[in-house]
Structure formats: structure tokens, C-alpha cells
Simulated scan of single mutants.
Amino acid sequence: MMHCPELELIENFYDAVSSKSLLEHFLQAHDWPDNRYAFAGRQFVLPRLQTWHADAGVRYSYSNNLLHTRPWTEPLLQIRADVEQRLDCRFNSVLVNYYRNGDDFVGWHADDEPELADSPAIASLSFGAARPLLFRHKISGETGGLVLPRGSLLLMKPAFQSHWLHSVPRDGRITGQRINLTFRRVGRPTA
């Protein structure tokens, strides 16, 4: 698979002990909502569990699904501070995803919603089972991928969302649980 210069993988951002502790926190102490939602009178099931945390006044939606904003928790605030210090970026929100096993996934997409700046930098932090991130160029169709191991931090540089689609595919061979935090800066907050 090809390499993408608009991605930077930092392995062992958190060591094995810290990664395991944070995974256990999110599995045991994080309040996960139901993964069913309604849109345009139809019911949908999200193929993973997720929560959205943001600074006051920040709202975000994707695929016309407005996310319910929760306040930051102490662990999320500390993780955000660690990520911001390492990357020298500022984030005002995080999407916390829980992949219960390899049957949970996220399909092909770009994080290019109107609420985000034109070229957002997104930091993706993984705990638990390693999962592949696949990417596909929007014009040329070139494909690539990389594995996101536990404790790794992936920086999606600003141009990545403009040029590439990405996904975490379904893989029934994966039995382990994974928590993924995607930090972003919503550029057009609304009340």
C-alpha cells in the first residue's frame, strides 16, 4: 500500500500501561448512549458507539446528524492537553468512538463538514485492539492504509480531508475492543 504524506503516525504516544488503563476507563466508566438514532423519520443503527464532547457553544453534525454535546470529563481534558502539547495544535472538541469488535466500523468519508475549518487538522488517538485505517484519493483513486496500534496518535494534516476519503473497515476476525478519540477544532461554532 502507498504512503500518504498528509498522515503522521506517532506510535507509543501512550505506553502500554497507560493505554490499558485508559482503555479500561472508557470501557467501564464512560457513559455510552444507545447507538440508534432517527433522521428524516427513519431509524438508523450506528455501527459503533460514540459520544461527542466540546467546549461550551460548540455544535457539530455529520451526515445531517446533530450530535448531542456533552461536557469534557477530567480524563478527556488531560488527554486533550497531552495531544495539544505534542502537536502544538488547539482542539475544542472530541468524538469518542467505541468499536466493540471487528464488526463495528466507520465507512468511507472525509471529515469536511461545514462546521469544520476549510482544512482541519484532526488528531486520532487509539486504545485497545489495533485496527487498519484505509484511505483512498478522491480524484486518482489511489489507495493505501496503515495500522493504528494501541497508544498511537495519528495526525491527519490539514490537506488530508480535502484530498482523501478514509475508513475503518469491518473485519470479523478482530475480537478485541477499541476506543478511538478524534480531536478536532470546529471552526464555525454556533449557539
Rank of each mutant, 00 (worst) to 15 (best):
M2G: 09
M2W: 09
M2K: 08
H3I: 14
L9A: 04
E11G: 04
N12F: 03
F13G: 11
Y14R: 07
A16K: 06
S18P: 11
K20G: 09
K20S: 13
L22G: 14
L23F: 06
E24N: 15
A29T: 05
R36N: 00
R36V: 03
A38M: 02
A40E: 08
G41P: 05
V45H: 07
P47N: 13
L49M: 08
A56Y: 07
S63T: 12
S63F: 12
N64D: 08
N65K: 10
N65H: 11
L66V: 10
H68L: 11
T69I: 09
T69N: 07
T69K: 13
R70Y: 15
W72P: 07
T73Y: 08
L77V: 06
Q78I: 12
I79S: 03
R80T: 05
A81P: 00
D82L: 02
R86Q: 13
D88R: 08
F91R: 12
N92F: 10
N92M: 08
N97T: 05
Y98L: 12
Y99R: 10
Y99G: 04
R100T: 10
N101C: 10
F105R: 14
V106F: 02
V106W: 00
V106E: 00
G107P: 10
G107M: 13
D111V: 11
D112R: 01
D112E: 00
P114N: 03
E115L: 12
L116V: 01
D118I: 14
P120T: 01
I122C: 07
A130Q: 03
P132H: 04
L133T: 08
L133N: 02
H137S: 01
H137G: 10
K138Y: 05
I139E: 11
G141K: 00
G141A: 00
E142R: 13
T143H: 05
G144M: 01
L146N: 06
L146R: 09
V147S: 09
S152R: 06
S152V: 11
H163R: 05
S167N: 14
R170Y: 10
R170M: 14
R170L: 14
R173W: 10
I174G: 00
G176Q: 00
Q177F: 04
R178G: 14
I179D: 03
F183G: 01
V186T: 09
T190F: 02
A191G: 14
